[in-house]
């Protein structure tokens, strides 16, 4: 059987008012990523195609898109791995409003980051001694398990609760909140637990673990959220909330 020389890329074009899939024939090359292919389309076929990327080497998370129905980093997805019957479908991330083509508006994503108490509350200044945190302490290990998040939005895009419940803060924001709950230097615990205990908070997570399955950094927001569930439940039972 001869090797295919081309693939049909069906790319979503449009904006907030609507759009649809447009077909582009892209030559198949060795070691070619989906981002390479989208870039090829923009340079050779359609200069008006809008998309985001930055490092293109799997570190920044900017190139996240929906490929064949799954959110992933396109610079870390080989085209040959996702071609099915000679075609690939590329669309913008879900659960976020589209600006144009493959670029989404991340305002609500970062807004929820803040609403979930994602901001570190300092209890010391640069004039104080450096906090002596043991890296192998239980809380530091819990925090370390979640701090590699680079806000790429893949988990948020995959989460069905985000899809079904507009107020839900989402896996990334709650994961971040949990790392700060475990940061001994942070002084905002009470406010943060209150922030994640409301109608859009951690208790809406159903532990599907789609976030954990798809996170490119292999984080598990579901477990962070379980930690928040325990922390808030304990706070209520102790009368602190």
């Amino acid at each position: 059987m001869s090797q295919a020389k081309e693939a049909d890329l069906h790319v979503w074009r449009g904006d907030g008012n609507g759009g649809g899939l447009v077909r582009y024939a892209v030559p198949l090359r060795d070691s070619q990523t989906v981002l390479d292919a989208v870039t090829w389309i923009q340079r050779r076929l359609e200069p008006g195609l809008s998309f985001r990327f930055a490092c293109r080497v799997g570190m920044c998370g900017t190139c996240a898109m929906t490929v064949n129905g799954k959110p992933r980093w396109t610079c870390r997805t080989r085209l040959k791995d996702v071609v099915e019957n000679g075609r690939v479908v590329i669309a913008p991330l879900e659960n976020l409003p589209v600006i144009k083509d493959l670029a989404c508006d991340f305002s609500s994503f970062f807004g929820k980051w803040g609403k979930a108490g994602g901001r570190f509350a300092a209890t010391a200044t640069r004039l104080d001694a450096v906090a002596a945190i043991r890296p192998d302490s239980r809380r530091r290990r819990l925090a370390d398990a979640g701090i590699e998040c680079i806000n790429c939005g893949v988990c948020y895009s995959a989460c069905d609760v985000v899809r079904w419940n507009p107020a839900y803060l989402g896996p990334a924001a709650l994961n971040r909140s949990w790392t700060l709950v475990n940061d001994e230097r942070d002084g905002g615990r009470e406010k943060r637990l209150r922030a994640v205990a409301g109608a859009g908070g951690c208790h809406n997570c159903h532990s599907h673990q789609g976030c954990a399955t798809l996170c490119p950094n292999e984080l598990n927001p579901t477990l962070s959220i379980a930690g928040l569930k325990r922390a808030t439940a304990l706070a209520v039972l102790k009368g602190e909330m």
Binding site: G69, K70, P71, A158, D160, H206, Q209, G210, T213, L214
Partner: peptide
């Protein structure tokens, strides 16, 4: 089943909800 839901723990959720 939508591609992003194609893993065992989502099926477990579906069974639980149904």
């Amino acid at each position: 089943i939508k591609p992003h839901r194609n893993h065992p723990l989502w099926l477990a959720f579906l069974l639980h909800r149904l």
